[in-house]
Amino acid sequence: MPTTLTINGQSHDIDLPDDVPLLWVLRDAIGLTGTKFGCGVAACGACTVQIDGEAVRSCQVALADVWGAVTTIEGLGTPVNMATLQQVWVDHQVAQCGYCQSGQIMNAAALLAQTPDPTDQDIDDAMQGNLCRCGTYPRIRAAIKDAAQRLQEA
């Protein structure tokens, strides 16, 4: 029997075994490839999405265990209508290879929702699970601080 998920506000019927991780449901069954596979063991954060606003590693959540509405990078904003955080990422020219950035942005979005004015320590604590082999961390940190300011002024 298909499982029904709400993803970026849309309902999807998924015909896959219960234990398939949400990551692979998103990427292969629905075609939302903005969410990336990096490690499969929650060690890199490339697959980070939000479930009911909480940042989760989608490689560790089985299809049957998805407990709420899923938001992916595609649901945060689009190239013609970017979320503030995505616009800040562009303004700070954060990405290099870019492969980890969907996960970085989804994690940062959850951080800012919970902690609108994060300290360096807050950023360290929240973001250290997200690996970037290009080393974009200094610009990620600057972008998060800038986004916090812009979101508070908005």
Partner: peptide, 21 residues
């Protein structure tokens, strides 16, 4: 210059080999 790949990489729309559909 504004990088030509930056919007794609900030919105999950940049295409890697693993994203080909």
């Amino acid at each position: 210059m504004p990088r030509t790949d930056m919007v794609g990489k900030s919105t999950g729309t940049a295409q890697y080999a693993t994203d080909i559909q």
